[in-house]
């Protein structure tokens, strides 16, 4: 199983978010619940967890701004 993790629609008014930090390396194995990255949206920092165990692939760059729905990472079931 593989999912694409995206900039969330954190609120009805959400339009864009900035990837501010990776907590794990590209290609790292992670456990469900482990923090993967942080996105800043409307002055709120959102720490995003892994929904299940898997391997993370980075699809976005720290410091860049992305639109809601843009891909940030891919998580593949270990």
């Amino acid at each position: 199983m593989k999912i694409t993790m995206r900039v969330p629609k954190a609120a009805v008014s959400s339009q864009r978010g900035q990837l501010s930090k990776w907590y794990v390396e590209d290609g790292a194995g992670v456990k469900a619940g482990q923090l993967l990255y942080c996105i800043e949206m409307e002055k709120t920092a959102l720490d995003i967890e892994a929904p299940f165990d898997g391997v993370v692939k980075h699809l976005a760059e720290v410091g860049k701004e992305y639109a809601v729905g843009d891909a940030i990472a891919e998580l593949t079931r270990a």
């Binding site: 993790m5 995206r6 995003i48 929904p51």
Partner: peptide, 15 residues
Amino acid sequence: QQIQKLLASGAVQFM
């Protein structure tokens, strides 16, 4: 909690 984690991940989107 699972639903909210999933929404935060952006993998799915709904109100």
